[in-house]
Design a binder for these strands. Structure first.
Lengths: 351, 351
DNA sequence: ATGAAAGCGCTAACAT
DNA sequence: ATGTTAGCGCTTTCAT
């Protein structure tokens, strides 16, 4: 038994063939005789031969691994997107390598280097929320490695082999507001966070436009910027409830589910009935939205579909693909999930 | 500007030196003159040189990447462990490559091959719950690639370079039961799942032994095997409540938080007061345990610490390490987190 | 202090 | 249908 793994030359020697024939046989190349192929495959199995992807990658200048870079893998969204990516990639014969930036540009940079070094066939990225400078993607673009930004993208970083998949956040917010208005709400507050990422800006705009479209002038005092945590939501809610009765909201739209829960808990603690006195909706359809009391209306971000779509876009940009132009950006449609927290009559839970 | 990345020979030519000198200079080898090192580093920067890890790995037969293989990255546990791994690995100069088995042995096998092919310096695995056959780890062992099993491990797969980190699940369960008994519970039910993974078996044993230690004979009818989902918990609870009053539990310990929530919701719906009529506790300290009403008592699994410990064990098994014997298995101590669902007096929330 | 040469395992252009 | 040759980028002995 060998200590090292069997290599292609081991097979070649054992069968009295050349390395190239072995290589071709294993690749099922058309001009290798069937008999030889059988012998090669047979021996490969016996010797427990596994091809060395490093050597192949080095030689070919490209591997069959896709790199995925996300800010983190906590919560519902990113793991689900990754699941979609993994499924689609696997079906297309790709391996997947996952890295986290921990919302840190420096780590984002390192991860990109790691992936480029591994000669990945393409890269799928969702940006860290602090990323302002994109020089670390220059290399990727220059070497024509296909790049897909998903969910958290950049304006102004275009290229032949660069594309994007996003959710229509604007529409998601718009739908929430229309739903709350239909439930009879007239003073709808909005909890949001910093606007560096366009996501939150777009949701805010959807909120404003939906109100305007229904003839309601948005009250700027009802948009509250808060920390994107449960505590942040609690603080914001307390602040809202300290105001004179006429200035308090009868509906609440939070751009973040955890923030919504924080607000929900304070509202209940202060004696408000949800949804009767205050209808509440969040964004992301986190797992726990189904577990709170009342359960929380939210917006599903089509996570799996986003992952799958991202891989499909990537494939269109591979050198093997015949499409010439960079694929157009894809924008997915969000799905409003109505639950108890916003449904004035009925039991909620329906979709 | 080059299309391809600058290589070591590009630097060599440009400086009139040999490739070996460049290699040594970049590795800060002691017998390269300081002057040369400076020139090399300078030019490397100018040409935006990045070493090619594939070539280095191929040559050295080992990379500085660690492979992490988990069943999935949903929920709280695995992402947190991975975070611990990533932090510790990064501090030690390792890159991390994450793969999922999706609880499927076949995918587990593929991922191991991918990692071995990438010449990882070591592998950290938590097994798929269906894994019975371990032949895919034979290769890893034979080539002496350090292997650490965490959380979900195997009995009977030992080796010079194989080690384990687990949680003391038995103790976690034991502590839960002692806590419930202290709250006055006398008939404590246990919701659990299939025993293929030793985790659930150990928690069940902790449950039994804790009762016995306090002079209570465990009633086998109070151990319910159910699907490990919210729905499974709901079904189990309904089943328990259909029994005559004297046979119903006054305490409930679920080996899974989601199952606990399902049970909790049914109990409330049927008019039981939690914790007064039924004290409830789960296991894993999932994020949502703090968000339910009442909030759910659970057991923290020391996720981050588990990840860090796993990397430390791995380092001890690297060829560079001086330790000779395989490190002893590490067993971490769980931490009971008491919340409202089990606290008969007081408000809970303390740890 | 530096260079020459060999080779890790694989593939692909160019023979035959 | 198979072999020969060269080389991907790097490290490492062995020279000088």
């Amino acid at each position: 038994m060998l200590h090292r793994r069997a290599s292609i030359t081991d097979l070649a020697k054992a069968l009295g063939l050349s390395a190239s024939t072995i290589s071709r046989a294993l690749a099922d190349h058309h001009d290798v005789s069937e008999a030889t192929k059988v012998r090669v495959r047979q021996l490969a199995k016996e010797l427990n031969y596994h091809p060395n992807p490093l050597a192949a990658g080095l030689r070919r200048g490209r591997s069959n691994t896709l790199g995925v870079l996300v800010p983190h893998i906590t919560g519902y969204f990113f793991p689900q997107v990754i699941h979609g990516i993994a499924t689609e990639a696997s079906a297309a014969g790709f391996n997947v390598m996952i890295c986290q930036s921990n919302e840190d540009v420096q780590q984002e940079k390192q991860a990109i280097e790691l992936m480029m070094g591994a000669q990945v066939a393409g890269i799928l990225v969702s940006l860290a929320n602090t990323t302002q400078d994109f020089s670390h993607f220059e290399d990727v673009r220059q070497q024509n490695v296909p790049l897909v930004f998903f969910d958290r993208t950049v304006e102004g970083f275009k290229g032949q082999n660069v594309s994007t998949v996003t959710l229509n956040d604007y529409l998601g917010a718009y739908q929430v507001i229309e739903h709350l208005l239909a439930q009879g709400c007239r003073r709808i507050a909005h909890l949001t966070g910093p606007f560096n990422l366009s996501i939150l800006k777009n949701r805010h705009q959807g909120y404003l436009d939906a109100l305007a479209a229904h003839g309601l002038a948005p009250d700027p005092r009802l948009t509250i910027f808060c920390e994107q945590t449960q505590a942040g939501g609690a603080t914001a809610m307390r602040q809202l409830l300290r105001r004179p009765a006429a200035q308090r909201p009868d509906g609440l739209f939070s751009s973040n589910d955890l923030v919504a829960v924080g607000a929900l808990q304070i509202a209940k603690k202060q004696g408000l009935r949800v949804p009767q006195d205050l209808a509440v909706a969040g964004f992301s359809n986190e797992v726990f939205t189904a577990l709170t009391e009342p359960s929380l209306t939210s917006v599903d971000q089509r996570c799996e579909q986003m992952g799958q779509t991202a891989v499909q876009l990537l494939q269109k940009m591979l050198p093997t693909s015949k499409s010439k132009n960079p694929p157009r950006p894809i924008v997915l449609k969000p799905k409003l999930i109505v639950r108890e927290s916003s449904l004035h009559d009925g039991q909620g839970g329906k979709e």
